[in-house]
């Protein structure tokens, strides 16, 4: 009988149960992915999956999409939030509310909305002559990719917002900007020499999260018929179970690696206290 109050036995029991719930399926998946060859443990599923040219294609497509998404998102969010923190702090909750939309509106609704809105061209009648303001985006390759990236940007907003917002909060943007101004610097110089360097770790963690989201995204890519990693993985799962489990494990590992990188980056950028 354990009567020692200092040992939080129930905490450990619940922790153990939680860990089991989380790890058992993962272990089962890992085990399954190693049994592509009957009777032995092998990496066959991994080598087969990774050497499929379609995999390479899908993965590189998603990687490129992820990078474009990151650039667009940061380009949108950083200046906006800098401005909001500096001059319109009362607007911050509203901006946050807008960025939370992807949590409220399911991706499927978003993608249908995009399709409905942008599949037809936007034409206005200018004194009898029709002028095309915006052509149909779904009819061209580039148009569909623009739609896809727009969707990804929306999906990444809550994460990018939070990362940048945390970064800006941790540095008293207003006073630092004013300090810079009083020392003779203009807004661009202040952004370059003061704000961006202090946001570096925040920007990186936002970017890495976005990367993880885009790589795993299924619905947007599937409905816009794009050769992305998500649909590829799903398709593979229906035909070659071992290979798709192997890729699942790989993407898991990748996500964890990204998390580890976030943690490392956000910690290591702060100069250490003197001893």
């Amino acid at each position: 009988m354990n009567t020692d109050k200092k040992f939080p036995i129930w905490s450990w029991v619940w922790f153990g149960l939680g860990a089991l719930y989380f790890f058992l399926p993962l272990i089962a998946t890992l085990d399954f992915s190693l049994r592509a060859q009957k009777g032995t443990i092998s990496l066959l599923a991994y080598t087969r999956a990774m050497s499929d040219p379609k995999f390479v294609e899908a993965f590189s497509f998603s990687t490129i999409m992820a990078f474009v998404t990151i650039i667009v998102s940061l380009g949108l969010v950083v200046p906006t939030l800098y401005w909001v923190h500096l001059y319109l702090p009362k607007l911050r909750p509203w901006v946050e509310f807008v960025t939370l939309m992807p949590f409220v509106i399911p991706a499927i609704v978003l993608v249908f909305g995009l399709l409905r809105t942008y599949s037809a061209p936007w034409i206005i009648n200018f004194g009898g002559t029709p002028i095309t303001i915006l052509p149909s985006l779904t009819e061209s390759k580039i148009g569909t990719r623009i739609l896809l990236i727009s969707g990804y940007v929306v999906l990444s907003l809550p994460y990018i917002f939070r990362a940048v917002d945390n970064g800006l909060r941790s540095i008293d943007v207003r006073t630092l900007t004013e300090a810079g101004q009083s020392l003779g610097a203009d807004t661009l110089t202040i952004l370059r020499l003061v704000i961006f360097p202090n946001l570096r770790s925040a920007l990186l963690s936002g970017a890495l999260l976005t990367f993880a989201i885009v790589i795993g995204e299924l619905i947007f890519a599937a409905f816009l018929a794009q050769p992305a990693f998500g649909p590829y993985l799903q398709h593979l799962g229906q035909h070659r179970a071992y290979d798709s489990t192997a890729l699942t494990i790989v993407s898991f590992a990748l996500t964890w690696a990204v998390m580890g990188l976030i943690d490392f980056v956000t910690r290591s950028n702060v100069p250490q206290k003197s001893h």
Partner: peptide, 18 residues
């Protein structure tokens, strides 16, 4: 402000952390 040649010290120090 950046053309005034006026130095300012803030309550919160406002040193550039980077």
């Amino acid at each position: 402000a950046n053309k005034r040649n006026v130095g300012m010290v803030f309550q919160a120090y406002a040193l550039f952390p980077n």
